[in-house]
Amino acid sequence: MTDRTRIALLLAPALLLLGGLFLSGLGLTLLRSFRYFPALGLTEPDLGAYAAILTSPGFLRSLGLSLWIASASTVLAAILALVAALLLRQSFPGRALISFLVQLNLTIPHVVGAIGILYLLSQSGAFARLAHAAGLIAGPADFPVLVNDPFAIGIILLYVWKEVPFIALILLANLQTLGEDHESVARSLGATRWQAFRHVLLPMLAPGLAAASALVFAFAFGAYEVPLILGQHAPKALPVLAWQAWTDTDLATRPEAMAMSIVIAAIGLALLALVARAVRQGGE
């Protein structure tokens, strides 16, 4: 058996799963989004569904909201993760414990976290009750609106809390591989501590940070359950809107749901491709 056939055989299960489930699902979604749906009597593909959603103010507001949620969550999570990784790189008493705590919430499902946020931060939640007991607020209406709010603060908080450890772990692995020698060189060449970070360490971490952030962005942009629980009634985040259109009793809205899904996937993929390209160019 040649190396090439061995590699092909070893990869086959993963490729089958990817091709069979993911790609054929995506292909079917693509067909439906072009209004090709023989069961409903739609046999002439066209761009009607895309035209309909792109001219609908509701869709555009949802798109804007989802972009806001994903961008804000990603930027905040990336900054906090960078700080956490740099702190956790140093050795100090209790580091192992803090490391463990940081990683712990990776194992908590998003839905569970979302319900937790709801219990803690809603106007009738635990923090509001504490504030009331302490005499800080007179009633639930005085507590700031942090969930189901127009700025999606609850959603963003949850994503930041969940994704900081994810990005931080990738950065920590990077930091371990890089070691401190490049920074030492920079210092001995006259760079201050800050310059060594800004001009040497940060650029060297950038590819890993960008890749991890892109994954977080794509996830926050496309995930459905968190904005369903913590989001406002209108506008809804894009995945929630798509799900609603898909489960609508009017089967004619299904192509629009598919078109929305394709838009979500396309934006995520475009972002990942951009990051991959930037990382490749930076490494040359």
Binding site: S184, V185, S188, G190, T192, R193
Partner: peptide, 11 residues
């Protein structure tokens, strides 16, 4: 600090 010593090191 290292950057103010006038010493450069090649590793």
């Amino acid at each position: 600090p290292p950057e103010r010593r006038g010493v450069a090191m090649v590793f």
